[in-house]
Amino acid sequence: MFLGDLVAAPVLQDGRRVGYVADVRLLVPPHTPGQRVGTPRVYGIVVCPRRTASFVGYERTGVREPRLLAAFFRWRARGSFLVLWPDLARVGENGVDLRLDARRWSADLDSRPQL
């Protein structure tokens, strides 16, 4: 399965549609045994109740400018939440099923400016 198949796929819980996959969060561990660099793992998916495209970067709490645009994009993605990978019951052709007890985390990302 490709990541591209996952993005925008419908997300179901208990047979009801709760939203669409807006983003996929990856975790890159510092080391993977036998490799120089870590292999990225899927950490969780961001579910947005609407079929809107993305946060355009405004999921990072440190980015709040320009005010009106930031407010608009955050408003457009309101109600979004993060579900960790173990909380997914099934990932298939027709979308993603969440476990009944799947925990909904905040979709915000702490951002610390680094260059």
Binding site: V56, G57, R60, G62, V63, E65, P66, L69, S111, P113, Q114, L115
Partner: peptide, 16 residues
Amino acid sequence: ILIVANDPDYLGDQVN
């Protein structure tokens, strides 16, 4: 451009 000119990940302290 307007959005990225405000992004500290790209611009550090040189944001708008």
